[in-house]
Amino acid sequence: MGQETGLFIYGIVPSDVEPTPDAEGVGTPPGEVLAIRHGELAALVSEAGLEEPLGRPADLTAYERLLDGTAEVAPVLPVRFGTVVTGEDAVHDLLAAHHDRFADALAEFEDRVQYTVHGRFDEREFIGELLAGDPDAAALADQVRGRPEVESREQRIRLGEMISQAVELRREAENRAAVDAVDGLVVADSPRQPSHELDAVNVAFLVRVDDEEEFVRAVEEFAEQRRDLIRMRLIGPLAPYDFVSAHQLVE
């Protein structure tokens, strides 16, 4: 296309949102973040060199910090990382073409933020519980312990598979329990794919700002009840990444 820069789009916000001067975008040096307004909407963008590859850790972090910081003060629709358009005209075209749908979606996110509950099983604790409660697994464990892998490979695979299946079952149960634990305190929930074989809980929640404290207390209690078994983390507040369906807004 002959030009050297494009506009990296972070997200879409209501038109009254203004980036603060300290907001830093992707790239080296970090791009200045601007709002391009159209009707009731604005797109948060920064200039990005087309030659410079994006996706370094610093770029991803800048993208997320901008969106999460924004979500704390205003509703925001994250735009997928790496979306770069030719220039300001293209941003206007984009906002004009989907104006009402974006505006409706933003209205739904008013005063709402995402929190992700992510827990991981303590491996020994989990296996200890399983062996204590499952005689078949305990019997296999006895055949495995202290024997070299070449001699006990078959038993090891069977035992490992049992453990793996038990983790999956327990994970489903814990995800449901997490959803139940915050029942009435969230607007929506969205289970996430496990990111580790010992993932115990991974669910995103959309929470009304007014309910945040109570929600956090409920998650704390949920974590406390599983203190030894699951290392529980609460990530947020975040922009509503898991509640923007990729294809529902732009066809």
């Binding site: 789009i9 997200g11 994250p78 735009v79 923007v244 732009v250």
Partner: peptide, 9 residues
Amino acid sequence: TVLDKGVVI
């Protein structure tokens, strides 16, 4: 958190 999320243009 962010990968494969967000509006796709």
